[in-house]
Design a protein around this nucleic acid. Structure first.
Length: 104
DNA sequence: CGTATGACTAGCT
DNA sequence: CAGCTAGCCATAC
């Protein structure tokens, strides 16, 4: 059912561990799976994400707290909406990683 | 199998 | 602060 490499599997596994109301960055997630340079690869995994129900890809944002792509709903708009609903603190159009940042 | 692309990041100008 | 370049990784075609 899952035809993905170990890297992608780990990305999904870690993403699933992100607590509600918190977010992490692609680079951080990449480092957690063992590829601190694989931030882009993490994005690819999210883009191919099996389902937002299994992988809260909306809790993964850019290193500067800005929201990047989203493969569901209305894209960024939906992503931002979900994060706000979960209690993530926004700093204008970006996320306050100092408050809602997740260390892992 | 080789090339191109992307939901990245950090550094410079 | 904004814009551009270079580097790294995995996937898609």
């Amino acid at each position: 059912m899952k035809k993905v490499s170990d890297f992608t599997s780990r990305v999904y596994a870690v993403a699933a561990k992100i607590p509600k109301g918190k977010v992490t960055t692609y680079g951080k997630l990449a480092a957690l799976v063992g590829n601190p340079k694989g931030a882009r690869a993490v994005g690819m995994a999210m883009r191919n994400n099996p389902s937002r129900a299994n992988v809260p890809c909306h809790r993964v944002v850019a290193a500067n707290g800005a929201l990047t792509g989203y493969a569901f709903g209305n894209g960024i708009a939906t992503k931002k909406n979900i994060l706000k609903k979960e209690g993530v603190v926004f700093k204008g159009e970006k996320i306050d990683l100092a408050v809602s940042g997740w260390n892992g």
